[in-house]
Design a protein around this nucleic acid. Structure first.
Lengths: 324, 324
DNA sequence: TTGTAAGCGTTATCAC
DNA sequence: GTGATAACGCTTACAA
């Protein structure tokens, strides 16, 4: 490992024959004579100089680093949102913490990030505990939350209520008891576990069946297997996510229950897997890439002006394939 | 947004009635009297104090931040490796930069990170340009590269050569010209585009067909569609990744070419999609979670002792499903 | 074991 | 327009 020394603002100042505060002004768009600017242009370029953000953050109010708290990386929605954020990123570094769906770790992550000099924090999670709400309100940097609506802090979300409404026509003439709702416990993710189902539950007068699963496909398959051992196969399944639907589908196919002939399935998210699986999965598509763009832009807005609490919602659309 | 002030080491010192260097020693496991320790335990706990890593890194040699350069988030291998790194993480923050498979951005990312006070950099990429090699050797912090072997820097990889050998028995009595190799251009990822095929190419005396694709499923499907328009369907397809295989499969099924009856397919990676698709995809499975653990541990080792250039390889195993 | 003082790389203040 | 100088929050001699 060669010992190339890190180059500092002092080096640049010395090499250009100017004071270091002049270099700082140069870097921060202060007023500079054309001559000095030219000299600095050359030196900075030659030595590939980049200011150290850690040092900058000590004195500056901004550090160019944004904390991102995610519940998992292994999710289409998540990676698309990250891509969206990257797409509109104006040179910030992302300090990403994966909490693996653990509420305690989420709180810790936010606390830790807040103590560093990050310019803001993006929290992706459907799981907002009371402790989390309290912490989010104490934090002194801008925060935007995705995955859960709230009056207490800034949020950006897909319109889960509307997404559920998109499915209501499908169940217009259906016997409510023939429908099985498959989703996570609302207490672990209210938006996904409940909001997506609101309109459906109402349309069915709450007479459908309901089964709680996890976000994991394999675990969901096991839960569905157990269900099928003691129940007749449902005619209609509405799953809170594609991944959950895929787990259910696996269990059904093991029992040679034909989809959609015997059981129809529809879900939410439109992940790539929905296109790959046989039969193709009908599902509500959300533009998570755009949502990621919103997230980043909203966070940057918050740093500029005085925050006005907002809660934009991004609408999805139903993609019909063969499963329903 | 409430204006809770960030709490500093000075506050803690004042509140505990000690000097700030004493607090520093306390935090860094220096010698402290039992009495002082007790006092600080209380104060630190009460105020939830966490030292600011940005400030720490200025004077300290370490910052508790590790740079991670990734080519994409939307990859099973990637997310598993991240999970592995998290699993053995000893309290470091990950500064993650997504380069979207862009060689230029990769170089920039490494340069930028090196200029910050990160304790080390993990680079995940199959694409090592000459410029990248040069930059990696100049960097003054430990670097571990995954995705490409090299004599010039530290690497950790799956054993792609061996993985290819695992497939040789499958093609023992096969007409070489009946085989189609589907993978990315070796110049964009030598490991995946070439090394995985080495043993197979040799076994077939280089008489098989070969087609270059991208890492994208949809794009690969299009490429395969074009191929099928001008060629008879191959009897055997060996794809460099599951995603590529899935793209090919889509094109085959559009043409009603039965798999495995008419065309057998095998691939590498064992992503969840390989299990979901019909027919189930036979593929070489790698323990990317373990690889992630290796990556992190190796990086930490490098910070400790004098580096001895190493290049460990993790072996995969063939998972037979229905596609071959 | 403790505190004082210097300094890490940067920006903000303020004379020049 | 420029360059000393004092912070920022922390660690590390060094002296007590």
């Amino acid at each position: 490992m060669s010992e190339k020394e890190r180059i500092t603002i002092n080096d640049i100042a010395r090499l250009a024959g100017v004071g270091k505060s002049t270099v700082s002004r140069y870097l921060n768009n202060g007023s500079i004579s054309a001559k000095t600017r030219a000299k600095l242009d050359a030196v900075v370029k030659e030595y590939d100089y980049e200011p150290n953000r850690f040092a900058q953050s000590l004195k500056k109010t901004s550090s160019g680093m944004i904390g991102v708290v995610v519940p998992t990386f292994a999710s289409f929605a998540l990676t698309e949102m990250m891509r969206g954020m990257d797409d509109v990123n104006q040179g910030d570094f992302f300090l990403t913490i994966n909490t693996y769906h653990d509420a305690k770790r989420q709180v810790e992550a936010v606390k830790q990030l807040a103590q560093q000099n990050v310019d803001g924090i993006v929290v992706m999670t459907g799981q907002i505990t009371n402790e989390m709400t309290a912490v989010l309100q104490q934090v002194s940097v801008p925060v935007v939350v995705q995955g859960q609506r709230s009056r207490h802090f800034e949020t950006v979300n897909v319109d889960n209520q509307h997404a559920g409404e998109l499915l209501v026509p499908l169940i217009a003439n259906v016997q409510p008891t023939d429908v099985l709702l498959l989703g996570v416990d609302p207490s672990s993710d209210y938006n996904v576990g409940q909001t997506r189902f609101n309109a459906i539950i109402q349309a069915l007068d709450n007479n459908m069946q309901r089964l709680y699963t996890t976000f994991d496909r394999t675990e969901t398959a096991e839960i569905m297997r157990n269900y099928l051992a003691t129940h007749t196969s449902p005619k209609y399944i509405i799953a809170a996510t594609d991944t959950i639907a895929l787990g259910a589908l696996a269990a059904l196919q093991e029992q040679h229950i034909a989809v959609p002939a015997n059981t129809k399935i529809v879900a939410f998210d439109n992940t790539p897997a929905a296109e790959i699986v046989t039969p193709g999965l009908s599902t509500v598509s959300f533009d998570y890439f755009a949502l990621g763009q919103w997230l980043y832009r909203r966070l940057k807005d918050l740093s500029q002006a005085e925050p006005v609490l907002s809660d934009p919602l991004l609408r999805g659309e139903l993609v019909r394939r063969s499963s329903w």
